[in-house]
Amino acid sequence: MATFIFLVAAAFCIAGAIGIVLFRDAIRSVLSLVAVMLALSSLYLMLSAQFIFAVQVIVYSGAVMVLFLFVIALMGPVREQPSTRLRFQGLLAVIVAGSFAGLVVAMLGGVRYRAPDKGAVLSTFGSVESIAYGLFTTYLYPFELTSLLLLVAAVGAIYMSRRER
């Protein structure tokens, strides 16, 4: 059962990823990206990371991708014209994709799997409680600094948009 769900989710991921690149219609690309995000979230769920699953759907599919869709709908249905591409783009794509694939293969070879830490409670692993505990104890300062960074970015964005007016 788990293998089957994994295969379905992985197939959706890969099909969506190919769709993002190949669709000429911007809205189709965005929808493919949404499919990738949703498939990814189901993979998180299979790793019993329930909280990450919910946040992935809420933040990425629910907010970020909707903003993408919003901008594309605002601009209207613009299709990517073949003439706007570089002449040697095909060759470049093959080189970049090939080197990236090589990098991934090299990295996968170096992965070392390990047993869970001694004393780790697997029944609460990935639950809201365990993530909250980690965030507010061990990782409190990085967590707060990240939120400060986001606040600075938001204030900066508002400042930029006001100055243009």
């Binding site: 329930q50 699953f53 759907v57 639950s127």
Partner: peptide
């Protein structure tokens, strides 16, 4: 365990 978050999602 995350009922309400599922609803939001």
């Amino acid at each position: 365990n995350i009922g309400i978050l599922v609803i939001f999602a």
